[in-house]
Design a protein around this nucleic acid. Structure first.
Lengths: 149, 149
DNA sequence: GCTGTCAATTAACAATTGTAAAGAAATGTA
DNA sequence: TACATTTCTTTACAATTGTTAATTGACAGC
């Protein structure tokens, strides 16, 4: 929850979660997570600072979770798992980088077309209003784009 | 250099470097780096994959550099340094997240105003054409925004 | 079936941004 | 200084996006 310190990390067995940011009452979707992905308000989970984001299930979910204290203990005691964890972090950073880059180089129309091509499951499973803010546009604008693509 | 595999990481003692992406001949500035910051085409440096980005000095620079092989050896042998390195990575990830978030929640005008407030050194030292693409807009649009702020 | 609620689309208009071209300002070089 | 080159700004117009409000569609509960 926004403002709270995130003490848990989750693994999604079934369902879909969105991470959103409260921008003066208007929520902005930052990321989606699906089956077999790990989720946390990571900046909070990692640093212990209050989270900017709120996690919210947009489908009924089956989750596994681990408390940060236990997680930290595992990282301390299992250097190989720690390695893997850092690799996951690095991979996620790469994905963010590419997603971000698309905001610099592509138009909203191109971003939607890319999403449709690269991650059609998102468009199938997520309400369009969330996809709109994920793409940095309004639902009205997304509707117009969908009409011509 | 774009397409090359990055084998070096740099530390900037003096000067300024920009990291840019070649988008069909038009270059798009992804990030700026200044004194006392580490730079690399990190996604390439980390993964060994060809880089999407090109590093370019936009001021005369004094740099220190380390070859990836030596860097990896240090990380292997000095777990404390490895810890610190991952912390730097995590901090950078946080910064990206905030920068990216501003593309979702702010207008170009607000992004420029934020930059002026939070990182005036960038505006002082970097040619405006690079700042424009860094903000995701054209130089013409940046010029209009500057006129009214 | 009917109704209420929320999501998505459509329409009309305002505001912003992009594009292309021209002009002004700054910088570098002989 | 004079000239060339590059950067930045300005202008005019086209295209896109945001805003507000109305309409349509989907769905749950009665």
């Amino acid at each position: 929850m926004e403002g709270d310190v995130s003490k848990k990390a989750y693994f999604i067995e079934k369902g879909c979660i969105r991470l959103w940011y409260n921008n003066n009452g208007k929520d902005i979707t930052f990321q989606f997570f699906f089956e077999n992905e790990g989720v946390s308000s990571f900046e909070s989970f990692n640093t212990g600072q209050p989270s900017l984001f709120t996690m919210e299930a947009i489908e009924p979910c089956v989750l596994q979770w681990i408390h940060k204290d236990d997680f930290d203990a595992v990282l301390r005691e299992e250097p190989l798992i720690k390695e893997d964890f850092y690799k996951v972090i690095a991979e996620r950073q790469m994905k963010y980088m590419h997603h971000f880059l698309s905001f610099l180089k592509d138009t909203p129309k191109q971003r939607y077309a890319n999403l449709l091509k690269e991650k059609p499951h998102i468009i199938k499973r997520v309400p369009l209003q969330y996809i709109a803010s994920y793409l940095g546009i309004t639902p009205v604008s997304l509707s117009r784009i969908r009409k011509i693509i």
